[in-house]
Design a protein around this nucleic acid. Structure first.
Length: 269
DNA sequence: GCGACAG
DNA sequence: ATCTTGTCGC
C-alpha cells in the first residue's frame, strides 16, 4: 500500500526538537473519532460461522466482504529492526510482509516511531492487499504528544489504526482497580499533565483481555489500548476485545509476533 | 534534584 | 525489545 503523507516520515536524523514538532503535526492530522468504512461488527478473531449466512435481501455474507485486519510487530536482530506484518480476513491469513532496517537511534520513550517507523513503513509498502485496520504494538493516543507509533503509522498511510501496549506510557486510570481487573473489564485512561490533550480527556483504555479464575494466586496485567487514527477510544476497546481469542494479546498481534520470530532467524544480524 | 519511562 | 531454565498453576 502507499504512503499518503510522506512529509511526516519518521526521519531518525532529525533533532529531538524537530521530532517532537513533527509529532505535534501528526497529532493535529490524526482523527480520534470513528471514521472508517468497514462494519466494526465484522471484525473478529476468527471465523464466526460457515460463511453461508443468508441475508433478507437474498445476498449472503462471505469472507471476501469482511474487513482486512493487519497485525504489526517489531523485533530486533543485532542492530537491525525487523518489522513483520500479517494480514488476515475472517481470521484467515492472506498475506505476510516484512522488512529489516538498520536502527539509527536508541530507544527513547516517546520517540519510538523514529526508531522503528521506517521498517514498518517499508513492510507496509510491500503489502499488496488493501487493509481496513491496523493493530500496532505500542501506543497510539496514549502518548505525551498524542502521537504514538500507532498514530504516526496510521496518519502516514491514512489507515484506521489502533495501538496495543503492554505497559502504560503516560496518562492515569480514571478508577484505579481495588485488586485485579476481571476479564473483559475496561477502565478509561485519562490525559494528565504529561499529555498535551486537555486534562481528563479519555485517551485510551486499560483492557483486561484475559484473567485467571483466581487472580489472588496468579494474575494477568491489562492491555493499554488507544486510538491510532480514525478510531475512537471506545471503538478501540471494542475492536481489540473482539480480536482476542482467549489469550492476552489480540490475534493480529500474536500472528505478527510469530511471524517476526520466523523472520528473525532468516535475517542475519 | 527526583521520578517517570511504549518497544 | 533482548539475554534465558526451570517452575508454578490451570
Amino acid at each position: 500500500m502507499c504512503v499518503v503523507h510522506p512529509e511526516f516520515a519518521p526521519d531518525a536524523s532529525l533533532s529531538r526538537e524537530e521530532m517532537e514538532a513533527l509529532q505535534h503535526e501528526v497529532a493535529e492530522t490524526a482523527i480520534f473519532e470513528d471514521e472508517f468504512d468497514f462494519d466494526p461488527e465484522r471484525v473478529r478473531s476468527g471465523p464466526s460461522d460457515d460463511g453461508q449466512t443468508q441475508l433478507p435481501s437474498g445476498k449472503e455474507k462471505t469472507a471476501e466482504d469482511d474487513p482486512i485486519v493487519v497485525g504489526v510487530d517489531q523485533a530486533f536482530v543485532g542492530e537491525k529492526a525487523v518489522s513483520a506484518i500479517v494480514a488476515a480476513r475472517d481470521g484467515e491469513v492472506i498475506e505476510r510482509t516484512h522488512a529489516a532496517v538498520e536502527t539509527e537511534i536508541p530507544y527513547i520513550p516517546g520517540l519510538l516511531s523514529f526508531r522503528e517507523g521506517t521498517a514498518i513503513l517499508r513492510a507496509f509498502k510491500k503489502l499488496s492487499v488493501e487493509p481496513d485496520l491496523a493493530i500496532v504494538d505500542g501506543s497510539g493516543r496514549i502518548h505525551y504528544r498524542e502521537a504514538g507509533i500507532a498514530t504516526h503509522i496510521g496518519v502516514m498511510l491514512d489507515l484506521p489504526a489502533i495501538g496495543v501496549a503492554k505497559n502504560l506510557l503516560c496518562g492515569k486510570l480514571r478508577d484505579p482497580p481495588q485488586g485485579h481487573m476481571r476479564e473483559g473489564e475496561r477502565i478509561p485512561v485519562l490525559a494528565n499533565d504529561r499529555v498535551t490533550a486537555p486534562n481528563g480527556t479519555v485517551i485510551g483504555y486499560a483492557l483486561q483481555s484475559r484473567q485467571y479464575d483466581n487472580p489472588e494466586k496468579r494474575h494477568v496485567n491489562p492491555l493499554y489500548v488507544s486510538p491510532g487514527h480514525r478510531v475512537s477510544a471506545e471503538m478501540t476497546a471494542n475492536l481489540v476485545w473482539q480480536l482476542c481469542a482467549g489469550y492476552k494479546l489480540p490475534e493480529p498481534t500474536r500472528r505478527a509476533d510469530a511471524y517476526a520470530d520466523e523472520v528473525k532467524q532468516t535475517v542475519g544480524s
